[in-house]
Computed example of a mutant assay.
Amino acid sequence: MSSFTHFNDQGRAKMVDITDKTSTIRTAIAKSSVQVNKEIYEKITQNAIKKGDVLAVAQVAGIMAAKKTSDIIPMCHPLALKGVDISFNWKNEEEEYHLLIRVEVKTKGSTGVEMEALTAASATALTVYDMCKAVDKGMIIGPTFLIEKTGGKNGDFKRDESLLDGLNVGDES
């Protein structure tokens, strides 16, 4: 038998059996960002993008993506999420405008919600791009990464955010 949990006895992919895992409260926080030009920044903040309220639509897209993660990530278990919260902040330096995206996902279950948080952060950023691409296709998405997770037998994880200095992913506005 393989020591890799996502492979069966034949070495082929399988979904891990979590039947016997304890149900606990699980949380995950992920972040992403979208670098935009001044025109897009002004249009988003003034709600002047022709497709509508960019942040409202992106927020709904992120929530929908979190709920559908198992539909697009093959080995993810379908989860009954208990909460998804997406917030935005701006970090502006000189002529660079970074929309910071923070996603927190919660459930009570037998497996973690890291993939749901990361998928939501990615879909949120992609939706911002989609809604603003008519103005400028030069936007830059990312990085996207896990900040922390709690619950489960592997314990908690918390990223040292000081290691991210210079990546324009902080919470300051």
Rank of each mutant, 00 (worst) to 15 (best):
I72C: 04
T5Q: 11
T111W: 00
K149E: 07
F88L: 08
Q46A: 14
I40F: 06
V60W: 00
S3I: 13
T69V: 01
V105P: 08
V54Q: 06
K38M: 06
A30H: 10
V54D: 09
G152I: 01
E94K: 15
N47M: 08
S110H: 12
I18G: 02
Q10I: 01
A134E: 15
A80I: 06
L164M: 14
G151P: 08
P143V: 02
E116D: 10
Y129G: 10
L79V: 00
M139C: 15
V113S: 05
E93P: 06
D17R: 01
C76W: 00
L100Q: 14
F145K: 05
R26S: 01
E148Y: 05
N92Y: 02
S70V: 01
L81P: 01
E172V: 15
K14T: 12
E39K: 14
T124G: 13
S173Y: 13
N168T: 07
D156V: 09
D20N: 15
I25P: 01
P143A: 04
A30E: 11
S87Q: 11
K106Y: 02
G152D: 04
E94D: 15
V169P: 11
N47V: 11
K82E: 15
I86H: 06
E104F: 00
G62Y: 04
Q59F: 02
D160F: 01
Q10S: 14
A30Q: 09
G83T: 12
A65P: 12
Y129V: 07
V128L: 06
V135T: 14
I140L: 15
D130W: 05
L164R: 08
T107Y: 00
E93N: 14
Q10T: 10
I25S: 08
G62H: 03
V54F: 03
G83P: 00
R26V: 00
Q10G: 10
V36C: 09
K51H: 07
K158V: 11
K68A: 11
T24M: 06
K68M: 10
K67Y: 03
T27W: 01
E172A: 13
T127G: 06
A48N: 13
T111C: 02
C76D: 02
N8I: 10
V34R: 01
G11S: 12
L100T: 08
M139I: 09
V103E: 04
D17C: 03
